[in-house]
Amino acid sequence: MAGYTLYDQAGVTEDMVEEFGERIFRMSHNIQTRIGDPYRMKDWDEVDAQREGMGLTDGEIAVKLDLEVEQVTFIRTLFESRRFRTGHYKRLYKLGGGKRYRPEREN
């Protein structure tokens, strides 16, 4: 069907990507913070307390933002792709064989 896009299927608009993209991205496990070593210690209170820091599932994010799971998945994966910098991979070509990454070499 002409003009029927994945945005339509997921019930997402570009405005929604703009509004929720960064928040969903940061709430997902793209960005992870772990305090201490709660999994190894089986410290269940800490495991639960750190779920947000370690990244929520799309379903959990959907509940928090009052969205549908499909909307969160669509926005998250789209946002991941838009942020993905294809040019960074070239940095690897200069490393190894005794050479380590130095940020000053990138400028």
Binding site: F25, H29, N30, I31, Q32, T33, R34, I35, G36, F84
Partner: peptide, 8 residues
Amino acid sequence: AEMNYDMA
């Protein structure tokens, strides 16, 4: 104490 990881 704390581990931060930018998986993206």
